[in-house]
Design a protein around this nucleic acid. Structure first.
Lengths: 215, 215
DNA sequence: GTCTATAGTCGGATAGAC
DNA sequence: GTCTATCCGACTATAGAC
């Protein structure tokens, strides 16, 4: 049973936990190493989060808050998809693509991504938190915008699938970064490379949203 | 130092290792649990593979062999991309998409994917083995076909990026399966769902390969 | 080639000083 | 609220019987 998290002085412990859990997994990461890297005693994990599991859950919530805040800034005050013209819906999708791609390419998303991908492969209680906190609202909006961009040319299921494939083509640059660098023969993804990716992503999304119903 | 792997009686130990390493990671998985699940003694890991690290490397090689064999079957005796017309190159890309999507949706790829994604997030010596054994030849061919399909409408860098995004939109169905099921509200991906994904993937690839140079 | 037994290390949790 | 000290279980590796 996890005890109720107490408020820590700062987020050093959480940031370190996200990094270590992301790299080594829930079982592979040790509370000793996390505490040492955060320059505190191991027992403060027990004190603040009730133990390893509590720290893991708190780390997930911390990621959700940060991503939620970041994407909300890019989406704040946007109109309801059904109030948009199909053309405006395409533009709104491109706006979400920019926000999401920025997240995928930002250095600070690397530890979040490692943590989240582990939850996709072997979900724990933390996955529910991540899904509810930011995946569900964001994917819901993307699907709604895709549906509106279709203007009846395709059905709801196809909207969901097209939205998924659009996410996938951006996700690959974070989740398969090692392969992406090997394939492009880039050393790193800087501003120039990010611009090239953005151009291709926009062209792909426009192409995907222009095509009529599949088959 | 890993000793030279000896030939085991069967692959039970390797298959179990792939599953456990994929779920728990190199540090999280225990040789005890692997040996127990494979119904053998822990010391046989030492005997056959020289220890935990040796087993991990052997597991990567085993994955590479199986994926290599599977994709070779889908690609066997294909002509050189530069000998194809742009239209034939598009068809060849669609053929690779079918092969790769089949792999992403096949139940047996789940443990392989878990193992591979871990190597993407935190590469070990096993990543080099995976890259050389099947990622490099397959991605090389996909890029060459994409380049040919462009027929000069875009440059080599854009071919590599378009190839990556095409991979990404298929990868999402394996790597972010939990999210894919949540978004589509499917319980599982069976034959009907696979057909729907394939239709959308083909339409997207055709759209992506039809568009001219981006921006 | 597969097993049991064991040595040595490291992990998480907890008690209690301050 | 943060620390040190300590318990106990689980881990990897290895020796040696069969």
């Amino acid at each position: 049973m996890a005890t109720k998290p107490k408020r820590p002085i700062d987020d050093r412990l959480l940031d370190t936990a996200i990094d270590q859990f992301g790299r080594k997994g829930l079982e592979g990461a040790s509370t000793r190493a996390i505490a040492a890297a955060a320059r505190t005693a191991m027992s403060s994990i027990t004190y603040h989060y009730g133990g390893k599991d509590g720290l893991h859950i708190a780390a997930a919530r911390h990621i959700g808050q940060q991503i939620g805040a970041r994407m909300a800034a890019a989406l704040g005050g946007q109109p309801n998809p059904s109030d948009l013209s199909p053309e405006a819906a395409v533009d709104a999708v491109l706006g979400m693509v920019d926000g999401f791609l920025g997240l995928m390419l930002a250095p600070e998303s690397a530890p979040w991504a490692r943590f989240i991908v582990r939850e996709q492969l072997e979900p724990t209680k933390a996955f529910t938190i991540l899904w509810e906190q930011f995946m569900k609202p964001l994917s819901g909006r993307l699907v709604a915008l895709t549906e509106r961009a279709g203007a009846g040319r395709w059905d709801a299921q196809e909207s969901r699938l097209r939205a998924l494939t659009m996410i996938g083509q951006l996700l690959v640059f974070r989740v398969a970064r090692a392969t992406a660098l090997a394939m492009t023969q880039w050393d790193d993804i800087g501003a120039t490379e990010a611009a090239a990716i953005r151009r291709v992503a926009h062209a792909n999304v426009r192409a995907i949203l222009s095509a009529g119903k599949s088959s």
